[in-house]
């Protein structure tokens, strides 16, 4: 029982984000309203972003900005930087890109939803399928 507890405490971040991803994926597939599907898409992509960011964490490390870098230490000699003091900057960089991509996809999807609504006056997928089949 205690090892299970230790395992959970060591990896609970990954589990939480995977559960969040699956909630978003379920909403994208199962919901009927287009807006709810879009919200599910957003939750899914955000959970992946959080998953990546949690990879970069190091215990007792600070944000990846080097302090007193330019002329901070007077006569203290060259700056010594220990890698263990700063968290990994690479997942943050990758996720900046992923956030931008998710916003761009959301914008294009909203534009498409507006076009659908202008034509059919409804956003429910079963009604839309009926309308389109009748055409």
């Amino acid at each position: 029982m205690t090892d299970f507890f230790i395992v959970v405490m060591a990896k609970y971040n990954y589990w939480l984000y995977i559960i969040l991803m699956m909630i978003g994926l379920y909403a994208m597939i199962a919901k009927n309203n287009l807006m709810k599907k879009l919200v599910g898409m957003n939750i899914f992509q955000t959970a992946i972003i959080l998953f990546y960011i949690s990879i970069g964490y190091k215990i007792d490390a600070t944000i990846p900005i080097i302090e007193n870098a330019h002329g901070g230490g007077h006569g203290a000699g060259p700056l010594v930087i220990h890698a263990a003091d700063y968290i990994n900057p690479l997942p943050h960089v990758l996720m900046l890109t992923a956030i931008v991509v998710s916003v761009a996809t959301f914008g294009v999807a909203m534009a498409l939803a507006i076009k659908v609504y202008q034509r059919y006056q409804t956003l429910e997928e079963d009604e839309l399928r009926m309308h389109i089949r009748e055409k």
């Binding site: 990896k11 971040n13 890698a83 690479l90």
Partner: peptide, 18 residues
């Protein structure tokens, strides 16, 4: 584990970057 400082992700490339 979460926050483990010697994981491959935390040592392979990020050491050079930091």
């Amino acid at each position: 584990d979460w926050g483990y400082p010697s994981s491959p992700a935390s040592t392979h490339l990020s050491n050079h970057y930091i």
